[in-house]
């Protein structure tokens, strides 16, 4: 046991992740406050498009839909999409696990629920096939082109969190769309991250891009005691002990690594094939 601990030092992933998530969420609150009350326009927007000075980030799915509908190539849009696409290619769905405000709010609500129900990881009542995610992405793209108006763009829960915070800061109201966020959070009681697992087209696109990512959850079968704690800890119900840390769906959130007593899971760069 001591030997194992020596070989693989503890990774403090949860601490870092909470820090990043909190920072990303604070950005959503501070940006409209600065813009509204202090006329500081250095940072604008939220996760549909974030402008930090001259550095623009555009969410890849929204940008793609905009291109599909308008059929006009606009260079700043393409360049803005580049950064998240590169991140997704190398790191996978880290946006979902580390940045997305929906996951952050779900995490908070999970913690709040845990205060009342002492059960650590609630049961998932509704299990659907994971391929539903690809189906949702295709339907979303086809619907976008049929309607000429992308649905996810104005109904996306992560975007709505930003938009509603901005609406509160600027206009002191909330819109009815905010109920979508509430519904998505409430769906966590049926299955943890029900929306993120099966219905988020943005997550699907990021998963698709991250198919050959470099950052993965690797598993050492030698030290694994097959306790199943990692599978129970995974917010999207993957089983890293059986190689699902390498699957496209994995968020790289590192929750399984934190829960592994034997430290046989590790978040890190993928080793070259043929070595182990």
């Amino acid at each position: 046991m001591q030997k194992t601990a020596d070989r693989t030092p503890k990774q403090h992933i949860r601490r870092w992740r909470l820090l990043v998530q909190t920072g990303a969420f604070l950005l959503l609150i501070i940006t409209p406050l600065l813009n509204c009350h202090f006329q500081v326009n250095f940072v604008q927007g939220w996760f549909q498009s974030l402008g930090i000075g001259k550095f623009w980030i555009v969410s890849p799915l929204e940008g793609l839909e905009s291109l599909l509908v308008a059929k006009i190539i606009y260079l700043p849009l393409l360049i803005g999409m580049l950064f998240p696409i590169i991140i997704a290619l190398f790191l996978g769905r880290v946006f979902c696990g580390w940045v997305c405000p929906i996951h952050f709010l779900s995490d908070l609500s999970d913690r709040a629920v845990r205060l009342f129900i002492r059960k650590k990881n609630p049961k998932d009542f509704l299990i659907l096939p994971r391929s539903l995610l690809w189906f949702v992405l295709i339907v979303e793209l086809v619907l976008t082109m049929v309607l000429g108006a992308p649905l996810f763009v104005f109904l996306s829960p992560p975007g709505l969190v930003g938009r509603e915070i901005m609406r509160v800061v600027f206009f002191h109201t909330l819109a009815w769309e905010a109920l979508i966020v509430v519904a998505v959070l409430a769906a966590n009681f049926v299955t943890r991250r029900l929306f993120c697992r099966y219905f988020c087209p943005l997550g699907a696109l990021l998963a698709f891009l991250g198919g050959k990512r470099k950052l993965v959850i690797s598993h050492e079968p030698e030290s694994c005691s097959s306790c199943g704690l990692c599978a129970r800890a995974c917010p999207i119900g993957l089983d890293p002990a059986h190689g699902e840390g390498l699957s496209m769906h994995c968020w790289n959130c590192g929750e399984c690594v934190e829960n592994c007593k034997e430290r046989s899971l590790r978040l890190g760069w993928q080793k070259k094939l043929g070595r182990g």
Partner: peptide, 26 residues
């Protein structure tokens, strides 16, 4: 093509110093 091209990022709303621009709701 406005509804399709606009990605509702709200940056125009945020930079408007007069709060002339409002985001529509559902």
């Amino acid at each position: 093509i406005f509804a399709g091209k606009c990605i509702r990022c709200g940056r125009c709303v945020e930079v408007c110093p007069y709060k002339s621009i409002i985001p529509l709701d559902i």
